[in-house]
Write a protein that binds this DNA or RNA. Structure first.
Lengths: 391, 391
DNA sequence: CTGTTAGCGCTTTCAG
DNA sequence: CTGAAAGCGCTAACAG
């Protein structure tokens, strides 16, 4: 019913082996034969049977990309960048945010130029949405393992607990053992995998330092979900900056006794929530309720920051006159929010593209298999000195 | 090296066939045997070889989702919704925007409850980013066809030209013939495929009517890329509304002679651009340059609308006092933009979920295989009567 | 309920 | 440079 390699061979008057060789282009075939085969392929509208070929060759052209939230541009940008590297040939250098690629590759067949033998196989890059669930992450990894995926890249924060970390490490080890290349993009390293980690701690620290330098002393922090590595790293950076300025614990209320140890044990002005607008809105309200003297709000995320801005606006507070607000990531909309958001820029597209190349073995791994990606401070209009400086 | 079904069979002291039956759970197996097999599977850490199984069974558990721009939440929301339906069992009813699913399915094996024989196979839902390139769309379809995908759902606008339409139809026909279920979500129908189309025309028409009712007479339109169906449909709805109010052609300048026919042939106040913020910004500038008397701007998209808002703000114009602005889609950020955007709500999550169910055959197809999804007007704060009513 | 027996469609030595 | 033949690991009839 469906046309097979044998059908093509028959029509071209050659053996199946020859057709296979023409199609994979990794073996010398006479030009005339090749042309005949290609014509037959075309006439019959033949499409390789992926599973059969994967079974015989013991490898597939599937590349999996795991994301925590596919509706979030943070992941969308990285995923798009990774995919952009999966084309048949090396893609033209993409620009900053990397839109408009339009590779217009081959017509879906492994047709090489007349003499060129090296047809880099077109990879099927697919993104899987874990919804932030460690369970689902593992499930997808198994599914990908089933498919004998050529590579998998995991993006964004990992679940932050010894149990999941260990299960993940075991899974990664098994994938690597099976020949699947594993790369992490925007995540802490895992043994056996290549990793591109973001400098969340450093970026967060410098951001808070910027605020402190401006004169802020009561700064609230809107953190992401508690059990994620990114959340923790950004929060640590923030707290480190506070500590460096002698503000170790920003307790919501003054301590009954000024005991410094007790103060250090006090929870700072931190509220946890999801990485979305609604959380930002709610957290801002909560923080200002707890401590009306707040002059700056540090959000875990640009999206969260925008939610916080909305809350402040609804309270009749002006940004940055009354309260400064900062984000993180520098997503496209941040630059032209009102006011333009001061934030930390993560080179999402570039990092994703690099991860894609690493996954394909098209780029040399960094020394030690781990590279730290720098975060860049973007000071815009949402931060300014506090109303009563030095208060 | 890698553990196979035969290894498991050997260890469990049964035949390979039995192991296969236990794993696929579609055949009666003695409880004791099943347990023994499951233990062996666990001990050996066995993972099915997807390609081999797909080859033998002539079908795979891959489901492809094609999107035009993975970095755009419009697609992210739909893709996430589709994926949410692919879990092992029917997922718990998801709420409006559908986050936080956390199905926590099986441990990656087809382990059924003690007696339950019906293990709905877990599908591997994967999203492919076409970047809006018709060429890439076809390529991905071929790749999916190679994998003998169980289903594929195409989301968002299609390339709007006879050539691509025909090539796409041919491809779809071949996929369907090969047993792949094809569903379109937010796209015009294609023979052989199920389709969930959005009422872009109707929504756009009602949106512009809202503006006209408010008293606006000079309204600019910021359209999407010219060669997309969604772009065309929304524009048609807009023009229909204008026509119904006797404003068929909004020429940038008054006609030299008032000839109505010539006027009707004049290009209206329309500028085309990409579906992104930058385009919205530029188009707004261009439109106001061409016709300073504009009192309302209709954008193809919420994202574009936000870009337009930024442009107006930079020109020192107030929204909606000086100029009203509308979007389309009602993405999450639209509700709390400043001012909150008047737009048309498309039930992206619900539509995606339905498309997912259709793709799996878990829901009865609509009559004729095509269903039109209603668009709902969301009037918020970015629209108001023009400065000088009735002008 | 379980074992045996054929392939699924392709790749890949190994000979010509 | 090309053909023949032997599986890759699994599923699906058939028998038992």
């Amino acid at each position: 019913m469906t046309v097979t390699l044998a059908d093509v061979a028959a029509r071209a008057g050659v053996s199946p082996a020859t057709v296979s060789r023409v199609l994979s282009g990794n073996y010398p075939v006479a030009e005339a034969t090749r042309a005949r085969v290609l014509r037959a392929v075309d006439d019959l509208d033949y499409v390789v049977n992926g599973p059969a070929s994967a079974l015989a060759a013991a490898n597939s052209d599937l590349v999996g990309i795991l994301v925590n939230d596919i509706a979030d541009p943070f992941f969308g940008i990285m995923a798009g960048a990774i995919q952009s590297e999966m084309g048949p040939a090396a893609p033209p250098a993409a620009d900053a945010w990397g839109p408009g690629q339009a590779p217009g590759g081959p017509q879906g067949r492994a047709a090489t130029g007349p003499a060129g033998p090296a047809t880099a196989a077109e990879k099927l890059a697919v993104v899987c949405n874990t919804n932030g669930s460690p369970e689902r992450e593992l499930t997808y990894l198994t599914l990908l393992q089933r498919q004998r995926a050529a590579a998998v890249v995991l993006t964004g924060s990992a679940a932050d607990g010894p149990e999941h970390t260990e299960r993940l490490a075991a899974k990664v080890a098994r994938l690597v053992a099976a020949g699947t290349r594993v790369v992490l993009c925007g995540r802490p390293p895992v043994p056996g995998a290549l990793a591109l980690t973001f400098d969340n701690r450093g970026g967060a620290r410098r951001l808070t330092e910027h605020l402190l330098t401006l004169g802020h002393r009561r700064v609230g922090y809107i953190a992401g979900p508690a059990e994620r590595t990114t959340t923790r790293h950004r929060l640590e950076g923030h707290l480190a900056a506070l500590a460096a300025h002698g503000l170790p614990a920003q307790a919501p209320e003054a301590q009954p006794d000024g005991d410094p140890v007790a103060a250090a044990e006090q929870p700072p002005l931190v509220v946890h929530g999801a990485y979305d607008r609604a959380s930002g809105y709610d957290a801002a309200c909560e923080l200002l309720r707890r401590e009306p003297g707040i002059t700056a709000l540090v959000a875990a995320n640009d999206t969260v920051a925008l939610g916080a801005c909305a809350a402040l606006r609804d309270m009749g507070l002006s940004i940055p006159r009354d309260v400064s607000v900062t984000g993180f990531d520098d997503l496209p909309f941040s630059a032209d929010a009102a006011p333009a958001l001061s934030t930390v820029r993560l080179p999402l597209y570039e990092a994703g593209a690099r991860a894609g190349r690493l996954a394909l073995g098209r780029e040399a791994p960094p020394p030690g298999g781990v590279a730290m990606i720098r975060a860049e401070l973007m000071i815009r209009d949402s931060t300014a000195p506090p109303p009563a400086p030095g208060r």
